[in-house]
Simulated assay, not measured.
Amino acid sequence: MDNQQSPNDSGYHIPVLYNECLEALNIKPSGVYVDCTFGGGGHSRGILANLNEEGRLIAFDQDADAQQNLPDDKRVIFVPQNFRHIQRFLRLHNYPKVDGILADLGVSSHQFDEGERGFSTRFAGPLDMRMDRRLPTTASDVLATYTEAQLHKLFEMYGEVTNSKTLAKHIVQNRAKTSLKTIEGFKAMLQPVVKGNPNKYLAQVFQALRIEVNQEMEALKEMLQQLPDVLNQDGRVAIITFHSIEDRIVKSFFKQGTFEEQVDNPFETVRKENPLKIITKKPIVPGAEETKRNPRSRSAKLRVAERK
């Protein structure tokens, strides 16, 4: 492989498992590849370095800020959309089938470091959290309108917050008398119910809200279901997850090719064949050197599958 050193990305976002992703994609020089999460363009630059003049890269990113990182390269097609619409936009650009797909599901360092985006507990700013600013619902809207049961479920599922039931009740009881428009206002409201390490607790709460606002799990499932139709035979898909739920979704789909429970039916003679073949029996994780250099890579897991 060429270009095996991970680019610095001028601090926008350090690409995780960079060399491992390029290797996993098994890049054909004249192939067509998709980067579902362009971000700072780190992984994309690695793919481009392995393509010849005929090769193409189709880069998706719903965050308008990502466009400023686009290289001046005629081989790149940028799609300012969520990757849940992958099939529609590949067809639109006359590339209905591709040779490889990469998705890095982590929030970029840039998004965490921009206070006005509302992703991080470290800054003062609006409680927004939309990766795509065209989305109608912010984190503040979720807190103001969801029922106690809905809030309990999302904090438990997406944040694994230990006292999610108490937290949901506290929000519903206090939201009428507190402004939830800002990060500072929300953090102050949470003070009485914070359990354990405050930084860890707040990070889990914010993570849950971000996943809900951006419909991250729904988008992931929709993208996965389109893979068999958009990948060429022997085409590879490489997905980096940072959350146990995401990882379970990817693992399950790669294994079964569906989200439906496979039940053995004695009257069913034809069992639906999985169109994907698992390449990574166990997920690839960052080594000690990478986690030291980039602590945010600690929870990353890379899974790879191939179209049969």
Rank of each mutant, 00 (worst) to 15 (best):
L151R: 08
E216D: 08
E261G: 00
R296A: 10
E23D: 10
Q81R: 15
A124Q: 09
K292Q: 13
I183R: 07
Q68Y: 15
G42M: 08
V98A: 00
I77D: 14
F119I: 03
S179D: 07
I77C: 14
L151S: 03
Q262V: 07
S30N: 12
A219D: 15
N69P: 01
M157G: 08
V98W: 07
N294K: 11
K28V: 12
Q225Y: 09
A219Q: 06
A144G: 08
D61Q: 08
P266E: 08
G42D: 06
L48P: 06
R130W: 11
A24P: 01
F89W: 15
E156A: 15
V237M: 01
E290D: 01
L151H: 15
K251C: 02
K165V: 05
K251I: 02
V304C: 06
H152M: 14
P96T: 09
Q204E: 09
K221W: 02
V304R: 01
R88F: 15
H243F: 09
D9A: 10
Q256G: 01
S140K: 03
S109P: 03
N214F: 06
D234C: 06
F206R: 09
P283G: 14
C21I: 05
N3G: 09
P7H: 12
T182Y: 04
F38K: 14
T37R: 12
V250G: 01
D61L: 08
P275G: 11
V230L: 01
R175K: 09
I86L: 15
F83S: 06
R307F: 09
E212S: 02
P29A: 06
D229A: 15
L224Q: 11
R236W: 04
S297D: 03
N69Y: 00
V237T: 00
I249S: 00
S164N: 13
R293M: 13
E160I: 02
G11L: 07
Y201D: 03
L48C: 13
Q87M: 14
Q111H: 12
E212P: 14
E216V: 09
V107A: 02
G125L: 06
T166Q: 10
D35S: 11
I240R: 12
F242H: 05
L190E: 02
Q87C: 11
Q207I: 05
R296D: 07
P29M: 05
R133A: 06
R56T: 05
S44E: 00
P275R: 10
E289P: 01
T291Q: 11
E273A: 12
Q256W: 02
D61Y: 00
M131Y: 14
R303F: 00
M223T: 10
S44M: 04
L127W: 10
D234A: 11
Q215V: 02
E184G: 02
D9W: 04
K221M: 09
V142T: 01
